[in-house]
Design a protein around this nucleic acid. Structure first.
Lengths: 176, 176
DNA sequence: TTTTTCGTACAGTTTAAACTGAACAAACTT
DNA sequence: AAGTTTGTTCAGTTTAAACTGTACGAAAAA
């Protein structure tokens, strides 16, 4: 292999880091945009991002909006600069985890509640349900429901375990 | 709202549960297939799944393969049955977590190693890199790399925290 | 004021994913 | 043996996502 140049190395890092970011549910495009932004360190304009990724400014605009909604990126103000500037926040790790843990916990909780509500309906309307050929069918369904709810409960507990706020601060870990 | 029938309730449960499953990176189709399968409880054939979801058998075949590869579903043998039977495993929760925790940990580890390798290259080829306008540029890049590697380390630690203690064993299967 | 520079909305296009039906091989039934 | 049944491969289609360029409003510059 010939001598690596800086461009190639940046490319490699971006690709690897983007893979990790994708694990959190971001699309490849969003992940790559975030990786570029984080690797750059300095706040970037839409034009710079488009240049770096070889895509249109429109595409960058929508991409950035997604990242903003996820709180993974923030808009930055700079004196004398007309263009919008965005950067991957300094406090990256905590912010990153927080964004997704919370998102997942909220979703899990919401779905758990839905299931519990269904469980209530099912137990109230008890046996006189139209479409139930067999009381056993209702029983089985109830059992499954309970299992699902328990599953959601376990998920919540698991998420809680890795939620930064509960554990030792990430900054402290970094300095250990 | 008029009296709910069993069909509607099943529909609701499936939809809610599928949402949760989607959080783990499954496509909506895969998630729904899994939800149907789990809710049914009994092993199902491809035809039954297709019927339940209103999709072709071909589609079910590919969908089931995905779930099999994720170890979320297993093939079941039944005496006198020619068709393949699949079911969402009894030991669902543990299996589910295991599948994804391992997958994520492996991926994280792989990407961390890649970054560490890049870090090595960067420190060896030190300052004489073509394309580097500024030695500060290389320093900054190095700092970012270290941050990314630390991030991956933290992710690994977090995953480890929620990993079920023991992986799925034959004994568990036998006693289920 | 007019002109330029931004960011975004929108319509249209390109690209990728999901899905289907026909065809086929393997296994089973008769 | 011939005829079914079953799962999967493959080619083609449908559907959804990503992306682009034009157009336009808002804000800054001239």
């Amino acid at each position: 292999m010939s001598e690596p140049n800086l461009k190639d190395i940046n490319e490699l890092i971006t690709t690897e880091f983007a893979k990790t970011v994708e694990m959190f549910g971001l699309t490849p495009s969003e992940a790559r945009l975030f990786a570029i932004l984080y690797l750059e360190g300095e706040p970037m304009t839409l034009d710079e991002m488009g240049e770096a990724l070889g895509k249109s400014k429109t595409s960058m605009s929508t991409g950035i909006r997604s990242l903003l909604e996820l709180n993974l990126v923030e808009r930055v103000w700079k004196k004398g600069e007309r263009k919008d500037l965005y950067r991957a926040d300094e406090n990256l790790y905590k912010k990153f985890m927080n964004a997704f843990i919370h998102k997942w916990m909220d979703a899990t909780n919401r779905q758990k509640h839905s299931l519990e509500q269904i469980e209530t309906v099912l137990s109230q309307n008890g046996s006189n349900l139209p479409g139930a050929a067999d009381p056993k069918e209702v029983n089985d369904l109830n059992a499954r429901l309970k299992d699902m709810i328990a599953f959601h409960q376990l998920l919540e507990t698991a998420f809680k375990k890795i939620k930064p706020a509960n554990s030792v601060s990430i900054d402290q870990k970094l300095n250990s």
